[in-house]
């Protein structure tokens, strides 16, 4: 049994860090883990996808299309872009946030208006939240990723300490309290 999570967002939204925190929590929960990240040019405001897989034995760092148990969409269009990775009946956690890419800003392409509807339709379960608002409420606008992880955590059986230890290791000490609150708000939003 392998559990697969796709984290799709825009460069700068922090899904690379979220993927790392998720992977470390899975490791602490006792699983074999593999991740795939994006670095370099693609990060400059481009489409950024990370993948995290865990189980007894994991091979490919890339998840086959139609296999992901969870899709974490940090932005609607990016969620839609990687929706084909979600397995039928899989769960989507969606940040209800639209960020127009350059071709849309320039009027060369149209932003898909029904992105959220399409994600809802394709997923077995769909949790929609406004992660940025929740993060700000928790005390750090940058904790969007932690809100998303909090929402995801409702569906996973990781011990609470696995999450907290991973956050502690990866988040700067001064932002830790806000991130722990953000995690909790994500949980509540999904629960």
């Amino acid at each position: 049994m392998v559990t697969d999570v796709v984290l799709a967002g825009v460069g700068g939204q922090g899904n690379v860090l979220s993927a790392r925190i998720l992977a470390e929590a899975a490791m602490r929960a006792g699983y074999r883990v593999k991740t795939s990240e994006v670095h370099g040019m693609a990060q400059r405001g481009g489409s950024v996808v990370c993948m995290v897989r865990w189980g007894e034995e994991v091979y490919s760092p890339l998840i086959p299309r139609g296999r992901a148990d969870f899709l974490l969409a940090y932005e609607l269009l990016e969620g839609l872009r990687f929706l084909e990775y979600l397995r039928p009946g899989g769960t989507a956690v969606v940040n209800d946030y639209r960020l127009d890419p350059l071709p849309v800003l320039r009027g060369d392409a149209a932003y898909p208006e029904d992105a959220l509807g399409l994600i809802r339709e394709a997923s077995g379960k769909c949790v929609v939240l406004r992660a940025r608002d929740l993060a700000e409420e928790a005390g750090s606008a940058r904790a969007v990723g932690t809100v998303m992880l909090g929402a995801l955590s409702v569906f996973l059986q990781f011990p609470r300490t696995a999450w907290e230890d991973s956050l502690r290791q990866r988040v700067p000490p001064r932002a830790l309290e806000a991130n722990l609150r953000a995690f909790e708000m994500g949980r509540k939003a999904a629960g």
Partner: peptide, 21 residues
């Protein structure tokens, strides 16, 4: 072979190229 997903082809969506900050 994984079961085909019910998603729109990603190639039909507007691209998001990296941009200068």
């Amino acid at each position: 072979r994984p079961e085909a997903a019910r998603a729109p082809r990603s190639s039909t969506l507007p691209s998001r190229p990296p941009v200068m900050c």
